[in-house]
């Protein structure tokens, strides 16, 4: 009979992630819209070694977390079933998706790109955390991503396997959201959402909005002031929808305005008082119509 102590020691000597090593986070492929978006993003970054190395370093992806079934070395247009290439797509969108020369949105790509980095350039907002993948334990959590920070905790954002099953734009805004949980947290933890009798009486689903001016096109507004989690999501989604770079295609931008407006109406305690993008059926520039369908309203403040 093996004593309990021997058994525990024996278990401790086993190579720990035995089960984990055999698991692969395989994400469903084939949704046409997602595949189009990924083909586009791949055609932009093409998994260049320098790009991948930069992303791994800046956003704290460690090989020991991402190499067992998460696609650490899988980065081609055909590998979108793996988690890591999806992170590359999302981060590329954060870093390059906003129009720079004609900028007029809430923030530019340079500023968004710094938010989920382990080493922000602005010392007052310096933080350091990892991005780690995790298999989803449905009984333990129904969150696609979670942020962790604390005295006895490794500061990190965990992306669950299910969390990769999102469009590149959705993963991008979720990464920004989780980053602000950590940035706004204190030494003993991340900042939590609030309950709201109006928005969510049964759970924490709401943030405060911290107002700042609209960017002056000549001097993009740096993300130095406090931004709540949903605020950064709403601003990024609206910027992707309205001030996206020329190469970004319709399937990437089309839902972004709805996402921004959903957040503004459902997750903000003190709404900033604006809505994102004209509520036209297709988010097309003025002058583009399907034949003689009458005049369209010009873009106006209301």
């Amino acid at each position: 009979m093996v004593s309990r102590g021997v058994l525990i020691v024996g278990l401790m000597l086993l190579p720990l992630p035995l089960a984990a090593q055999s698991r692969i986070c395989q994400i469903e492929q084939g949704r046409e819209s997602d595949e189009n978006a990924r083909a586009l993003l791949f055609s932009r970054h093409q998994c260049r070694a320098s790009t991948i190395d930069l992303f791994r370093r800046l956003y704290n992806f460690n090989e020991r977390h991402w190499d067992q079934g998460w696609g650490w070395d899988r980065c081609s247009a055909n590998d979108s079933g793996f988690a890591f290439p999806r992170m590359v797509d999302a981060i590329y969108l954060i870093r390059n998706g906003i129009d720079q020369p004609n900028f007029g949105g809430w923030h530019d790509s340079v500023n968004y790109a710094r938010v989920p980095t382990g080493q922000g350039r602005d010392a007052s907002r310096r933080h350091s955390y990892r991005h780690e993948p995790q298999f989803t334990d449905k009984e333990m959590s129904n969150k696609a991503m979670t942020s962790h920070r604390g005295l006895l905790t490794t500061d990190r954002v965990e992306i669950k396997c299910d969390g990769f099953d999102m469009s590149p734009a959705d993963i991008a805004r979720a990464l920004l959201h989780e980053a602000e949980h950590i940035i706004n947290g204190s030494w003993h933890g991340t900042l939590h959402h609030r309950r709201s009798s109006r928005l969510c009486p049964d759970k924490e689903c709401a943030d405060r909005w911290h107002d700042h001016p609209v960017t002056d096109p000549s001097a993009p507004y740096a993300i130095r002031s406090t931004h709540s989690m949903y605020q950064i999501e709403a601003e990024f989604s609206c910027d992707i929808s309205t001030f996206h770079a020329d190469w970004v295609t319709w399937d990437v931008i089309e839902v972004a305005a709805s996402t921004a407006n959903s957040i503004l109406t459902s997750n903000i305690l003190n709404p900033p008082g604006w809505r994102c993008a004209r509520p036209r059926p297709m988010h097309w520039p003025d002058g583009i119509t399907l034949g003689d369908t009458g005049p369209t309203r010009p873009v106006s403040a209301r």
Partner: peptide
């Protein structure tokens, strides 16, 4: 409150947006 919320969009008149906001 939704009725008079200004719309933030590419091509907007920035001064009009600021005023409406």
């Amino acid at each position: 409150p939704v009725v008079t919320m200004p719309i933030f969009d590419r091509g907007m008149d920035r001064a009009a947006f600021d005023k409406a906001l």
